[in-house]
């Protein structure tokens, strides 16, 4: 067995305790609806509020495969590069948000409805609060 210096042991113990406390705190602070996605790779840089995409609202109306095959969204928050120009051209969100199936892209504030400063990613409680968070 390798010999560990006391300070290394101490720092590892401290790290473990920190990890434990973070895991305990994480689920308590999560208040978003499960599966909500924040899209802010481009929004705030362009002077708009971040987009909040609610999975719960969409899955009542569409099966997963509609967006994740026919529309072409990758199943990883942040992995899709979404430009307003594409949406206006009828791609990605614009396949539905075209004033025919759902409201059109002129309704900026219905999608761009997030609090300033949010980071791109998937939200909502009920994860392990641990390594499952990416």
């Amino acid at each position: 067995m390798t010999y560990l210096y006391p300070q290394i042991i101490f720092s590892k113990l401290f790290g473990a305790c920190l990890l434990a406390s973070l895991m305990l705190l994480a689920p308590l602070t999560a208040q978003a609806e499960y599966g909500d996605v924040v899209l802010n790779n481009r929004a705030e840089q362009s002077g708009m509020r971040p987009v909040i995409f609610p999975h719960w609202f969409h899955r009542i109306r569409f099966k997963c495969k509609v967006c994740h095959t026919e529309v072409g969204f990758e199943m990883r928050a942040g992995a899709n590069d979404i430009l307003m120009a594409d949406i206006i051209d009828g791609k990605l969100c614009g396949k539905c948000h075209n004033n025919k199936i759902a409201w059109g892209p002129q309704n900026c504030h219905l999608c761009h409805s997030g609090l300033p400063g949010l980071k791109t990613g998937i939200r909502g409680g009920d994860s392990t609060g641990g390594p499952g968070k990416w």
Binding site: E33, P116, T128
Partner: peptide, 29 residues
């Protein structure tokens, strides 16, 4: 971590509603 997720400190049915209003969800402005 798992126990915390599986048994939240506040039961969903009593003080805290299961679904928060959008204005209180820490995401919507």
């Amino acid at each position: 971590g798992i126990a915390q997720g599986a048994f939240p400190a506040e039961p969903a049915s009593t003080e805290k509603p299961a679904w928060l209003p959008l204005a209180q969800d820490d995401l919507h402005d």
